[in-house]
């Protein structure tokens, strides 16, 4: 089944070369049109609009898995380089980075947001997978809650299963004061956006310092709790990265819908008022 394809690195260079070439061609045509007193903005505008529609077709292709018209990865490659190309053509088309006028500036901002989210997505799609692989466990996104509650219930079993000796009471109360909340709550949006190690490290440190108050045979329980904390931390890191990997697509696609809407209006008005 392994189809003969270009190695990824070669493909990347080929794609970039083709894109740069296409941008050069468009820039040459635009400057020629401008020099000849033609309508370069009409030309780049139509180029942009058709690119926009082509770019949006990726979303259509993704939603139609039966479509025999090329694999989504091919479409994605085309999408990426076409996106790059479109950003370049935008710079040729727009009089400024952000155009004047209410509609135009909105259009510009939405376009730039879509572009920026696209580049962000491109970046994290290439960098996060390896990081995700490095984090132990391979939880599926929709099962994150399941994993979380499993960890929480395991931790609570561990803590509540302890006998009621005074030494164990220390561990128990520590669990109820600090660990229970850590295990039961989902990570906050802030943490998801900018994950850190501090809370996990603090809990581990607290747990470690607790060891001397405990009976000698509780060492294993402490280690198991520490392992659960680390697993929970790994799970949250997975969640953070997978959440970002999914969220940007949503933002990107929502914005591109708005972009298409605004672009259609812009096209209609530009055509109407160009003469």
């Amino acid at each position: 089944m392994a189809t003969i394809r270009l190695p990824l690195k070669t493909r990347r260079w080929v794609g970039l070369t083709v894109t740069v070439f296409a941008v050069t061609v468009i820039a040459a045509i635009t400057s020629t049109l401008s020099d000849r007193l033609g309508s370069p903005s009409l030309f780049t505008g139509w180029t942009l609009f058709s690119c926009l529609i082509l770019l949006m077709l990726l979303g259509v292709r993704r939603r139609l898995p039966f479509w025999p018209l090329g694999s989504v990865s091919t479409w994605t490659q085309v999408h990426l380089h076409l996106g790059l190309f479109t950003a370049a053509v935008y710079l040729l088309h727009a009089p400024a980075i952000i155009g004047g006028g209410k509609l135009e500036s909105t259009l510009s901002i939405v376009f730039l947001l879509v572009t920026v989210s696209g580049f962000y997505g491109w970046f994290i799609s290439r960098t996060f997978p390896a990081q995700l692989t490095a984090v132990p466990g391979e939880p599926r996104f929709d099962r994150m809650n399941w994993h979380r509650s499993q960890l929480a219930s395991t931790a609570s079993e561990l803590a509540n299963g302890l006998p009621d000796t005074s030494g164990d009471q220390v561990l128990k109360s520590f669990y109820h004061e600090s660990l229970a909340a850590f295990f039961s709550q989902a990570p906050s949006l802030g943490w998801v956006l900018a994950p850190g190690r501090t809370r996990c490290d603090r809990l581990l440190g607290d747990l470690k310092s607790m060891e001397r108050y405990l009976p000698a045979d509780r060492r294993e329980t402490v280690e198991q709790l520490a392992a659960l904390i680390r697993r929970r931390h790994d799970l949250d890191r997975q969640f953070s990265m997978q959440w970002k990997l999914r969220s940007w697509v949503v933002i990107h696609s929502c914005l591109s819908l708005a972009l298409l809407l605004a672009a259609v209006v812009h096209v209609a008005i530009a055509l109407r008022f160009s003469h």
């Binding site: 089944m1 392994a2 394809r5 990824l8 993704r62 898995p65 039966f66 479509w67 025999p68 090329g70 694999s71 989504v72 990865s73 479409w75 994605t76 799609s125 997978p129």
Partner: peptide, 21 residues
């Protein structure tokens, strides 16, 4: 029976998935 072949392979946007011998 699908015209697209394996949908999973065709649907992967990053060419990460392969059916291989």
């Amino acid at each position: 029976s699908l015209p697209s072949g394996s949908a999973c392979v065709a649907a992967c946007p990053h060419e990460a998935l392969v059916r291989i011998d």
